[in-house]
């Protein structure tokens, strides 16, 4: 999974609406509030060992990490329209929007 990044800057993406914490012990770095949300790739940040494996001392293949930009207002139904949230998201949490 440390191949070339699947998404380029500007790509429209959607964060998977997945809730592994409901299935059992896990460690995930994708905050709840962006799951299922559409965002825009700012840029790939490089490939890093998957924290979901590192947390359990399992072999941890590298995954591409992205900076993804979201609009604040649709998430919270408050805030100024132009305000944004930028979050580091691993590739396996992203799909094409």
């Amino acid at each position: 999974m440390s191949d070339a990044p699947r998404f380029a800057p500007g790509a429209a993406v959607r964060v998977k609406d997945d809730w592994p914490e409901r299935r059992g012990p896990c460690h995930i770095r994708t905050p709840h509030y962006i799951r299922g949300r559409r965002g825009t790739v700012v840029r790939p940040l490089g490939a890093f060992a998957n924290p979901e494996d590192l947390a359990f001392a399992r072999p941890a293949p590298k995954r591409t990490l992205y900076h993804v930009l979201f609009e604040q207002e649709p998430i919270w139904h408050e805030g100024k329209p132009a305000d944004t949230i930028m979050v580091e998201v691993f590739e396996h949490w992203l799909e094409e929007a």
Binding site: I85, M86, E88, V89
Partner: peptide, 12 residues
Amino acid sequence: VEVRVVDSTADY
């Protein structure tokens, strides 16, 4: 001014 919140969630 756009307020851009940066949620530091991973390796950076």
